[in-house]
Nucleic acid binder design. Structure first.
Lengths: 342, 342
DNA sequence: CTGAAAGCGCTAACAG
DNA sequence: CTGTTAGCGCTTTCAG
């Protein structure tokens, strides 16, 4: 049954309905101005024949594809270490679907992939792109710029010297970090350490900045660099315990890191939160609820971020004319979720 | 800069190289039989103009899209609760990319989505489909069958009365479960309980069957139904403790469930593995290594599953003629990973 | 080995 | 309001 039954064409429907192709096209595309009687006849013919428009033919003339590329730059540890990625995709998918757009997923791992992606984007298969997980000096933005595709970034890109017209959606990493640290301070802690994320990503830098906003003038040895993995959380925690045995709180750049830190704390006989209070970031459910004790953390609405990215892009695509660019950056709020660890 | 620079066409390249469109097409598509001198000239022209073929135009005539749909049926708890999904996607993406195929992601949530997916598939946008997470009596297979698209399923579909020509890739769930239970028995345990997964999925049923293979004749109260979530693991564990206080081992249908069980065990003062040994399934890293104690579990190579699915589909698509169908089912082996919990 | 010509299925002016 | 007429950019016989 590999026989691909030759699908009916517009022509066939037109013949059956006794009208011209143009009329069928109008009905199918919902154009106004077709007498109801005819429209009805056409609809019946479509139904009977099981007609489905050929997208390739349509794209050829409209130059629209109703498809958006989602580009995820790997190896992005977080992407495959937690459900972050899936959540965001879900948000994007929902929004895209609601507007009859398809989601073309492009995962990139190395240089070659970048070239491939560049070619793909240039090939005009999609109307726009959603891009994630940029690291500092990633070549992707350049490639995309060159392809001249409307693009929305997930997470603030690190273009310090940047042009102002970059559209992105980000969480309020800095504000969330401040909340976390203030919460710790509010608990009466004073020697609050911070385990950072991978500092080649703006999210990690922003969280560190938030920490510093509140802890200005604190002992710099209270900050140790991590990379968002649980392993880095363990390593960093050990180092912290060695350097500053007196610390009484830790703000970890994400939940995975916090989980690692928690383990080391327990190993060393420090009780959480009695001796050391711990706060994470992300509120990655299967992690945050699973730790011992459950993690107090900063939640960001991942799915909403995805949805918003898609919405911004679609809006941009629909702007047939009006040249008033969309907002260049949207920052979503975060909320502190209190569990047992702090 | 929304000006979409009109991309060069075959025509333009032909003009520049001083040949016909047909010749350019041959060179671009790597057809044999173009004098090297001309071919070279064409390649240069392509390079200079930055020509990239228009896929829509090409598809219109070839009826190939070099694109594959990946359909994930939600709400599939596991999909968003663990990195399973991402891993599998990565495997698929790699394989597809290696063969210049694109990945179109279709997430479905409810009835409406099914219709939409059916339309999409029928619309001839993709050459084939990869389908995941089928539950019993999911309408998807029917829709796909109707669209007449070559398809490979992830996980054995539950078509008991089924036609023999279903192609799927699955893990050896039953064998893995047997290994897990035997391991427990080998540890000297005898009252081995099982917390099942969602029994409307074949993976859960197969794991239960594996358990029964080894524990034939065991007290039926040792089996409690779960649904692959950590919450169900907690609930089930509580129930088990109530029913069979003497149990000395638990085989959980997946790591998340095991993590939940572990928590309840600790709550009740049972030491793991001394009092109760626990084995999970999946080897979902961020979970399995994070539990207290780290989880002994059955590992399946998720990424390889994805890669294999893609490979089977591509092979099917390339079969221009030979009607010897591909293997109807491929089952990948699992391995027991020993950590501290058993 | 290369070019000319005929569409693939659809939309979008433009007439009527 | 509806039909006619051109293509969109590319592949693919079929001649030469």
């Amino acid at each position: 049954m590999t026989e691909t039954a030759p699908r009916p064409t517009l022509e066939a429907v037109a013949a059956r309905a006794g009208v011209s192709r143009a009329t069928v096209s109008r009905v199918v595309n919902g154009s106004e101005g077709v007498r109801e009687r005819l429209a009805e006849r056409v609809r019946r013919a479509v139904e009977e024949l099981g007609y489905v428009p050929n997208q390739a033919a349509r794209s050829l003339v409209t130059r629209r594809h109703d498809a958006v590329a989602v580009i995820v730059a790997e190896p992005e540890t977080r992407v495959f270490a937690d459900p972050f990625f899936a959540r965001q995709l879900r948000g994007i998918s929902k929004e895209l679907t609601a507007h009859d757009n398809q989601l073309v997923l492009l995962l990139t791992e190395d240089r070659d992939d970048h070239e491939r992606v560049g070619r793909y984007l240039a090939g005009g298969h999609v109307d726009g792109a959603l891009v994630f997980s940029l690291h500092i000096d990633d070549p992707l933005p350049g490639l995309i710029q060159r392809a001249g595709l409307p693009t929305v970034f997930g997470g603030r890109p690190d273009w310090s010297g940047g042009r102002g017209d970059v559209v992105y959606v980000d969480s309020d990493n800095r504000g969330g970090a401040r909340d976390a640290v203030r919460h710790l301070l509010g608990l009466g802690r004073s020697r609050v350490a911070h385990i950072t994320g991978a500092l080649d990503q703006t999210s990690a830098v922003d969280r560190l900045d938030g920490y510093r906003d509140v802890m200005a003038g604190a002992d710099p040895r209270l900050v140790v660099e991590g990379d968002f993995t649980a392993a880095s959380g363990e390593r960093a925690m050990r180092e912290l315990l060695g350097r500053c045995p007196g610390l009484d709180a830790v703000f970890a750049a994400n939940d995975l890191t916090a989980a690692g830190a928690l383990r080391v704390l327990r190993e060393h006989g420090r009780r959480v939160p009695e001796d050391v209070a711990v706060v994470g970031f992300d509120d990655m459910l299967p992690i945050a609820e699973q730790t011992e004790p459950p993690l107090t953390t900063v939640r960001q609405d991942i799915e909403e971020m995805g949805r918003l990215m898609a919405r911004l892009l679609l809006r941009e695509l629909d702007r047939t004319t009006g040249t008033d660019g969309p907002p260049s950056g949207v920052v979503l709020p975060t909320t502190l979720v209190r569990r047992a660890s702090a």
